[in-house]
Write a protein that binds this DNA or RNA. Structure first.
Length: 272
DNA sequence: CATGCGGCCTGGCAGC
DNA sequence: TGCTGCCAGGCCGCAT
């Protein structure tokens, strides 16, 4: 689920609501996520103040006083909602942060592929974040970087772009969109793509992510922002999920195939 | 080291 | 209607 635009949407949504609040208690109803929620989390964070909320890759970072940071990953099906008032727990509501000033942050994740981690000191050195590639919206993400890094790689361009050590935040939806916009077939070998095409790809990755952020993310089924609103970027998708429908650029038919075990969507006319 | 695949979980949906 | 099988936005670990 949440790829970069969705996590960014949640980040921007909750930041103004929780910065400055301090923690009364954290309720953990089901610690068994992809990794176990740390034992004693509530005691560790009780009384600490939220200093800032940021995002790195697909992780949401909540920075607390006392130099510690909560890292939240939403996996495939996770949502994080701010509730002004208490609401009865439902199935799959695994954790909730309750603030002294009122208000609470509820973590729901039916498939439990998400994670809640605690980092002391610089969170970027936490094992989950160390070793990640550059942010796609940063200056480090350039055509030259992709070109040099991809030399001699035989993996598909689709897989290469989705690897978080290449560049972070691009998942199965946005990789289809960016490759479609750049006119590159998803099965092309990463190591055989020219500088010129990488330049176009970098531009299109940035463009699609920015447009998706502006739309509040993509809601296919259950994604929602911090206040429960869906994202509207699904209306703008040009390739993902459109197999059999006409390409909006050339009128050809959008195809689907499986690459690396994941479904991929492309236009055989526009992409090669 | 690079690559490819299965597994983790649950829910929704198509097809029978 | 009810069952089965397949698929899903991510990521890790293992085998080759």
């Amino acid at each position: 689920m949440p790829e970069l635009p969705e996590v960014e949407t949640i980040c921007r949504g909750i930041a103004p609501l929780i910065v400055g609040l301090n923690i009364a208690e954290i309720i953990v109803r089901e610690p068994r996520l992809r990794v176990l929620i740390p034992a004693g989390l509530s005691a560790s964070l009780q009384g600490r103040t939220v200093l800032a909320v940021s995002r790195r890759a697909k992780y949401l970072l909540i920075h607390f006083s006392g130099d510690c940071t909560l890292l939240i990953h939403l996996g495939m099906s996770g949502t994080l909602r701010f509730l002004a008032e208490p609401l009865p727990f439902e199935c799959h509501d695994h954790a909730e942060i309750i603030f002294n000033q009122g208000g609470r942050l509820r973590f729901r994740d039916p498939r439990r592929f998400g994670a809640i981690l605690l980092a002391y000191g610089d969170p970027l050195t936490h094992p989950a974040l160390a070793g990640l590639g550059p942010e796609p919206l940063s200056d480090e993400f350039t055509a030259e970087y992709l070109y040099l890094r991809s030399r001699k790689k035989t993996v598909t361009i689709k897989f290469f772009l989705m690897e978080q050590k290449t560049v972070v935040g691009v998942g199965n939806i946005y990789v289809s969109e960016a490759l479609h916009a750049a006119g590159i077939a998803p099965w092309r070998q990463a190591g055989k793509i020219s500088r010129r095409r990488y330049a176009l790809l970098v531009k299109e990755v940035r463009a699609v992510l920015l447009r998706a952020i502006a739309a509040g993310g993509t809601t296919l089924r259950d994604f929602q922002g911090a206040t429960g609103k869906p994202g509207y970027f699904s209306q703008e998708l040009l390739a993902y999920g459109r197999a059999g429908e006409p390409c909006r650029k050339c009128g050809g038919e959008i195809q689907s195939m499986r690459i690396g075990g994941r479904s991929s969507f492309y236009c055989a006319v526009c992409q090669s």
